[in-house]
Simulated scan of single mutants.
Amino acid sequence: MLAENYELIETIMLNFGLVGLFLLMGFAIHDVLKKNNVPKVGRFVAYGVLMLGAMGFLAKGIIQIFWQSGGIG
């Protein structure tokens, strides 16, 4: 059974790993910004960049699902 679902398990674990990395980056950024008393505008920019990166990975995943369900790739 493991050999049959190896690719699916690998994909799921990769996605969970990426989510975990983005959470850890968010915690690290929050800690640095809080310790250095960064103004709200700077915090907004830093969190915005992190969110754009996460949304890029999410969009890539959604596009990949649509392409694979349509028979492309």
Rank of each mutant, 00 (worst) to 15 (best):
M13Y: 12
L23P: 09
W67M: 11
G17I: 06
K35F: 06
L33C: 09
K34D: 06
I29V: 14
Y47L: 01
L23Q: 02
A28H: 05
F16I: 11
F44N: 02
V38D: 05
K34A: 05
H30T: 07
G20I: 00
I12M: 08
T11I: 13
K34W: 04
F57M: 14
G42M: 06
N15A: 12
D31G: 15
T11D: 15
L58T: 08
I65T: 12
V49G: 01
N5F: 09
A54P: 00
L23R: 06
V49E: 01
L8V: 11
L52H: 04
F27M: 15
G70C: 03
G53A: 09
V49R: 02
I29Y: 10
L52P: 04
V41Q: 12
F57K: 11
I12H: 10
G53N: 11
P39D: 06
V49P: 00
F66A: 13
G73L: 11
T11P: 13
K34R: 09
L50T: 01
I12E: 14
F22R: 05
F16S: 12
L18K: 11
G56R: 07
L18N: 12
M13R: 10
G26Q: 05
L52T: 04
I9H: 04
K34G: 05
L23E: 03
S69T: 02
G70P: 02
M55P: 00
K35M: 06
V38L: 05
G73Y: 11
W67C: 11
G53D: 10
M51C: 14
L21P: 07
I9K: 05
L33R: 03
A3C: 03
Q64Y: 11
N15T: 12
E10V: 06
I9A: 10
I63V: 14
G71R: 00
L58K: 11
N5V: 10
V49H: 00
I65Q: 12
Q64H: 14
E7V: 04
D31Y: 15
L24D: 09
N37V: 13
V41T: 13
F44Q: 07
F44W: 06
P39H: 01
F27Q: 15
G20F: 00
F22D: 06
G70W: 09
K60D: 15
I63S: 13
Y47A: 04
I72S: 06
F16R: 14
M51F: 15
M51L: 15
M51V: 15
M55N: 02
I62Y: 03
D31W: 15
L23N: 06
M13W: 10
G17D: 05
L24I: 10
P39V: 04
L8E: 08
W67R: 13
I9R: 10
L58W: 08
V49F: 01
L2Q: 02
F16L: 15
I72W: 07
F22C: 05
L2T: 03
G61P: 00
V19C: 04
N36F: 12
M1S: 05
I65S: 08
I62T: 03
Y47S: 05
L33Y: 07
E7A: 01
N36Y: 13
L14P: 08
K60W: 14
I62H: 04
A46D: 09
I9Y: 07
N36K: 14
G71L: 00
G73C: 09
G26A: 11
F16Q: 13
V32D: 01
F27E: 15
L21R: 13
N37S: 12
A54F: 01
L52K: 03
G48A: 06
H30Y: 01
A3Y: 03
M1L: 02
G56L: 04
A59F: 01
L58R: 04
